[in-house]
Amino acid sequence: MCSGYISPEYANFGLYSLKSDVFGFGVLALEIVSGSRNRGFRHPDHHMNLLGHAWRLFMEGRPLELAAESIAITCYSSEVLRSIHVALLCVQDKPEDRPNMSRAVLMLGNNDSLPQPKHPGFFTERDLLEASYSSRMSKPSSANECSISVLEAR
């Protein structure tokens, strides 16, 4: 699972498009609103990354809970909600569902109704083993934790 700004289509298939940049913009927007990074995000109730957490709150009708306290205090809630909504539109799994960058900027600056976002890419819940390794900021040298021998000629 990718945890940064790389779009699913690029990470999975090496396909890059203008919609790949939009994905990264959406991740960055969620990071700004929440005050948390997507990579290494932790929540006591689940093991989702920031995208999964934002999606979950949005679907439960509690998107403002994503906002960092400093954002919630200093910004209008309607602007915070709109930023979260547009960010979720930008991080949708399929590139054809994402707006292009100029449309995303336009959506942030107007009051037009927004379409319902579809699930984001890379939002699945991490398993406990991966969460344990990422919390120590180290990864095993192999998936099954086998040692790797170095062969040397005689």
Rank of each mutant, 00 (worst) to 15 (best):
G52W: 00
R39N: 04
A11H: 13
G26M: 04
Y16R: 15
V80T: 11
I6C: 11
N49V: 07
C75N: 10
S77G: 03
F58E: 01
D97I: 01
E60F: 04
S3Q: 15
R39S: 10
C75S: 12
S36M: 10
I71F: 08
E65L: 13
I84R: 01
E9A: 12
K19C: 10
W55E: 06
R62H: 11
E9Y: 06
D97C: 14
R82H: 07
L57I: 06
E9T: 13
S7K: 02
A72R: 03
P44H: 11
I6H: 06
Y5Q: 03
S36K: 12
C2P: 14
D45N: 10
G52Q: 02
G24D: 13
G52T: 02
N110M: 10
F23V: 02
E79K: 09
L57S: 02
E69Y: 09
A104D: 04
Q92K: 03
S3V: 12
G4S: 14
R82P: 03
R56I: 01
S3M: 14
S102K: 15
G61D: 07
S36G: 06
L50K: 07
F41C: 12
L50V: 08
G4N: 12
C90I: 03
D112Q: 12
N100V: 04
T74K: 15
L108H: 10
G35E: 03
R62N: 11
E9V: 12
S7M: 11
N49R: 05
Y5V: 00
V22G: 11
F58N: 02
N111D: 14
R98E: 08
I73N: 13
E69W: 08
G35A: 07
D45K: 09
F41D: 03
G26K: 02
E79F: 05
A87K: 04
Y16I: 15
M101F: 15
D97Y: 10
L28D: 05
L106F: 15
P63Y: 00
G52M: 04
Y76P: 04
H53D: 07
V27R: 03
L64Y: 00
S70R: 15
G52V: 05
N100G: 10
G14W: 10
L51Q: 08
V86Q: 08
E60Y: 02
C90T: 01
Q92S: 08
W55I: 00
C2N: 13
L28V: 09
N100P: 12
I32C: 03
N12F: 12
L51G: 09
F58V: 02
S77R: 10
H43T: 08
S7H: 05
